[in-house]
Computed example of a mutant assay.
Amino acid sequence: MTTVLYFGLFAMSFDFISGYTGYLSFGHAAFYGTGAYTVILVANGLVPLFPTSTPFMISLLVGGVFAVVLAVVIGLVSFRLSGVYFAMITLGFAQVLYIFVRGWDYVAANPRDGPSVGGTHPAGFEIGIPGVDQLNLAIGVLAGEEATVLGHTLGSTAVSYYMVGLVALGCYFAMQRILHSPFGRVMLAIRENEERAVAIGYNTYLYKLGAFAISGFFGAIAGGLFAGFRRSATPESSFYFLTTGDALLASIIGGFGTLAGPLYGHLFDETVREFLSKSGQGGGLLPYLRAGLGDQALATPIFGDMTLGVLIDTLLNGHASLYVGIVFVLFVLYVPDGLLGTVRTRVGGTLADAARDRFRDDHSTPERTEGDDE
């Protein structure tokens, strides 16, 4: 679930630019990797002006600023194009960065072992208010921190979940605020009809560049959370183009142009993969069938030498990605608005607006009639 939170934030940053301006950023992994590598490099003392004692929250912001600069550089060239050409040129920029980082010995913990980055922050990867020890908790898949809340002890996994979730929630509200501002309304105008937006006087080039920089900032925050939780980063796990592909998958399943939808889309994706995985650590289908059917039922011949157990293994063992692909195709064909988008269509708006209207209807004062006074 911690993975769902930080990658869901990355998918939301992808939806911020792609779903609200209509410009598909296939190179969005560049920002995710920038945030991840900045956090680890700062922790290892490899970024000038930032010692190893730099608080994790500062490292996150530094990674975000670097991503903004990178987004401006990429956007200055890319936004001179549109449609599939914009998507491909951003993908090209990301692949160039991927190859560059993979072969750069300076960012490798040990060049002989390959271009991986590792390290442990002396003060811990702590989320909170820098300088106030009581308001900081370290995250990490292996070296997290325990906490006691209202007499209940939370393990390192739970602490990581809540602290990463706190940052992801804050970033979501920040992006939501931007989308509901006049700036966000221009983003929507660009998506619906850019020529009309230009005709009424908006410099859409600058607005697109600003939206791209904002999305890059939050994408880097997500990458920094990933690196802080995993305590390492590699080009394959951050800069590779399939990272953007996973964000695209989450956005389509959750709903383009919904902001929160990609988070639910990635949760759905991870749930299906877990349910159909080999191990099924969360209670997958394959372990359930093996335990529920029993050895005698699994040994039942189906045809020839094939037993029921062999058939189940053939259909389920290691084929989670195949079934996720089938689900993805079904969503594109029959649920084009995604999970959250379809729900919003059914209720006639956002869930918050629908709940507010329902609450007002239930608590509204009945209209007075002439006979009420009598």
Rank of each mutant, 00 (worst) to 15 (best):
A233I: 14
D361V: 03
T300D: 05
D361I: 02
A299F: 03
G309R: 02
H319D: 06
L351N: 04
P262T: 08
L267T: 14
T345Y: 12
F331E: 04
F303Y: 06
Y323E: 05
Y288D: 01
G245M: 08
L298D: 10
T244S: 14
L242R: 06
L333V: 12
T342H: 11
F275V: 13
R290Y: 11
L249N: 05
A247Y: 14
T350C: 07
T234I: 06
I302F: 02
L248S: 08
E270M: 15
L289I: 12
G292C: 09
R346N: 07
H363N: 10
L276C: 07
I302T: 02
G257P: 03
P235C: 02
P262H: 05
T307M: 01
L249Q: 07
G283L: 11
L289R: 05
L285D: 09
L322F: 14
H266R: 14
S279M: 05
K278V: 15
T271H: 04
A355H: 07
L330D: 09
L249G: 02
G309V: 03
T234P: 09
V272I: 15
V335C: 07
Y288T: 15
L276V: 06
T350W: 02
G341T: 09
L340D: 09
F331L: 04
R273N: 07
L330P: 01
E274M: 13
L249M: 14
L286V: 07
A247S: 12
L322K: 00
D357T: 09
S237G: 13
A299T: 04
R290T: 14
T234A: 12
H363G: 01
R346V: 15
R290G: 15
D313H: 03
